[in-house]
Design a protein around this nucleic acid. Sequence first.
DNA 1: ATTAAATATTGATAAAATTTATGTCAGATA
DNA 2: TATCTGACATAAATTTTATCAATATTTAAT
Lengths: 334, 334
Amino acid sequence: MSDIPFSLDQLRILKAIAEEGSFKRAADSLFVSQPAISLQIQNLEKQLAVPLFDRGGRKAQLTEAGNLLLAYGEKIITLCQETCRAIEDLQNLQGGTLIVGASQTTGTYLLPRMIGLFHQKYPYVSVQLQVHSTRRTSWAVANGQVDLAIIGGEVPLELQEILEIIPYTEDELALILPPNHPLAEQETIVRDDLYNLNYITLDSQSTIRKVLDQVLTRCQINTSELKIEMELNSIEAIKNAVQSGLGASFVSVTAIEKELKMGIIHRAHIQGVEIQRTLSVIVNSNRYRSKASEAFIKEILPQFCSENHLASLDRLSKKNKDSFTQDKKIIIES
Amino acid sequence: MSDIPFSLDQLRILKAIAEEGSFKRAADSLFVSQPAISLQIQNLEKQLAVPLFDRGGRKAQLTEAGNLLLAYGEKIITLCQETCRAIEDLQNLQGGTLIVGASQTTGTYLLPRMIGLFHQKYPYVSVQLQVHSTRRTSWAVANGQVDLAIIGGEVPLELQEILEIIPYTEDELALILPPNHPLAEQETIVRDDLYNLNYITLDSQSTIRKVLDQVLTRCQINTSELKIEMELNSIEAIKNAVQSGLGASFVSVTAIEKELKMGIIHRAHIQGVEIQRTLSVIVNSNRYRSKASEAFIKEILPQFCSENHLASLDRLSKKNKDSFTQDKKIIIES
DNA sequence: ATTAAATATTGATAAAATTTATGTCAGATA
DNA sequence: TATCTGACATAAATTTTATCAATATTTAAT
């Protein structure tokens, strides 16, 4: 009966091709030869009796059926990985993997500290950190590719039902200036000073930009009048640019601790303006929660959580659904 | 990286054992020998480094890990079966997407009717209509972003080799006037009358403008002497403007059926001048043609095709690359 | 026309799964 | 206790499948 006309390997190959964009690179990423890929895909196409790629000689593009299979294949692979981890966890916490997602700022300055602590406690659990946009991170959590994430922006509307979103702590954004900037002399600066600065920022799609827009607008600052001199895609790069006197920027205070101490960047205080955003932890409560992620939530997260949010974090750590482990006892006997 | 330590076959074996209650009967139900089952389970246990059965000689009982894997395995198998069904459905036109491209006029007045018919016949296929310039539409077909398109202008030179361009039907452009315009009284008007009108047109890059220029020039009308009063970017807007007495315009007769019937727009006939353009179907024969687009070409297009072009349309529908149906050579030999 | 990049093809080889035949073991039978 | 039996394990041979190296084909770019 119900023969399945494809193998997991074939699905993984398909996924690799989609990710790498070519048979050859997929072959490299899977550490096999290119013909192996070609042949597996050909077998797959034969078995399904559907072409999966449009071969235009130089590049191969997924057909509609190919895309469909890819989408399902990714789901299947994710489920298989979840299976592996469930079994690993069953053994103990002497192995397994924890995958944490984060956005630029939290991923660079907050999570490394957390992961360090976790690693000290559970040295046999391998931890992965994936830094992506809020949007992509949210989807990764929803799909189960990531166990939990800490983000600073809004979760896409379509995921707000699915994900557990727990306010976690406040992140303060600071205006930073080169230390030799005239305004750096003053104790505080005033709103109008903001219009005379040149800014270096992340790209306009970034969460920090969106949050900044919102908060500044609320403080009666017209963000469209701020002169943006340069857009860079890394916070470290921005800091270097500011330090070199190229302009001002807004960054999380957690990102500039070192630089402030060394006096190579100046933090300006704006009279009557305080820019805060709330960082949130997101998890997918409908999925199996691994022992490792349970431990992270219970033992690491509280150490960095602001007090007013500790209660909701605690509630989360109690909400682990024991998915579907014991709903079937099968005993083989005569 | 993420190697999956089990195969779908192994999961199916595990499931069969659970269902049948013994290795031997599982073997029978899967039409393989009993050792095959034993070995596969042993491999599985080796790869997962977990015993799945408690062997007590006569009977084998699932361990906790075995139960866990079984529960996940069943989920995975179900998802795989769903995948098969989705792909089968796509073949049988019980799903999938058809993307049709068109220019303003055809997209507004011709294609909606076609798509309506198609949708009646294949309600589970979702149809998308993309209205763009001839140029952009042509590229979309070349890239495979659009399955097929109907256009009124010239395909860019660099794509003429790649695309199949099939003359499809003639579209007549009519001069339209406000019904209370003095010229609307006359049975026909003469060429020189054209120079005394104010025109409302699409922008000068539009296909209709280019075609119009060509055809009118061929009729010895100096298009640069025609007074263009206004450029609008929608045909509906143009009709409304003409109707309100703002000027004259040239539009496809298919665009003004309703208005003529209601008498709110007047169509003027110019003595000795008939403005026609040829609409063409374009497809990319080098790409896999989805079942849905095949059906559209075979069953919908002919209904709106002018007779003199039916033959070439028919030729097109036979030119589908039967990709890999024919390579199932079965050779019988010793 | 030539080159370069990407995929397909081929024939040899290695790896894996399956089979047949046989071995082992626990418990039922006598 | 000895023996039989049903259920799984093991071994060697066989078949099937996957992989590789080498090479051909195709096509886009120069």
